Simulated scan of single mutants.
Amino acid sequence: MPMQTALQYPHAGHAVPGAIVQKRAIAFIDVPTRFKKGQTVFSEGSAALHFYEVVSGTVRTSQLLKDGRRQIDAFHLKGDLFGFEASALHRVGAEVVEDATLRIYQRSQLERMLAEDAEFAQRVVAAMMHAIERAQSHMLLLGRKSALERIATFLLDMSGRLSEMSHLDLPMSRSDIADHLGLTIETVSRTLTQLERKGVIELPSHRRSIVLRDRIALRRLDA
Rank of each mutant, 00 (worst) to 15 (best):
V41W: 02
P2T: 08
R123V: 03
H206A: 13
L203V: 03
D222A: 15
S87D: 15
G83D: 09
H130W: 13
E98Q: 08
F51P: 00
L89K: 13
Q136W: 04
P17V: 06
F154Q: 00
A121W: 06
A86R: 11
A6H: 11
K145S: 10
R215P: 05
T193Y: 06
P32F: 02
S43P: 04
A25M: 09
L162E: 00
A217L: 05
D169M: 08
L142P: 02
H167Y: 14
D176R: 06
L203M: 07
V124D: 04
S163C: 02
F84A: 06
I185P: 09
S87N: 13
S146T: 10
R207T: 09
F35R: 05
E202G: 13
D99V: 05
Q136G: 07
L181H: 01
M172N: 07
F120N: 00
V41F: 00
Q22S: 14
T184P: 01
Q71A: 10
D222G: 04
M139D: 14
G182H: 02
R219C: 10
Y9N: 06
Q63M: 12
M129P: 03
V200K: 02
K198G: 08
V97R: 03
R107M: 15
M165C: 08
T40W: 04
R107W: 08
L114V: 14
L114P: 04
A115W: 14
Q63P: 03
R197S: 14
A152G: 00
L110A: 03
I132N: 09
Q136V: 06
H90C: 07
Q136D: 11
V211K: 08
Q8Y: 12
A48G: 00
V125W: 05
R69F: 03
G143P: 01
V21T: 12
H130L: 15
G68C: 05
M129S: 14
Q63S: 13
F51Y: 09
A178M: 07
T184L: 01
L49K: 13
R219Q: 15
F28H: 12
R174H: 15
P17K: 06
A178Y: 08
R69P: 03
V125Y: 12
S43W: 04
E85W: 05
V41L: 00
E53C: 05
V92C: 13
A88Q: 14
Y105T: 04
E133D: 14
M172H: 10
R190A: 06
Q22T: 12
Q4S: 12
I177Q: 09
K78H: 09
A94F: 04
A115T: 11
H11D: 12
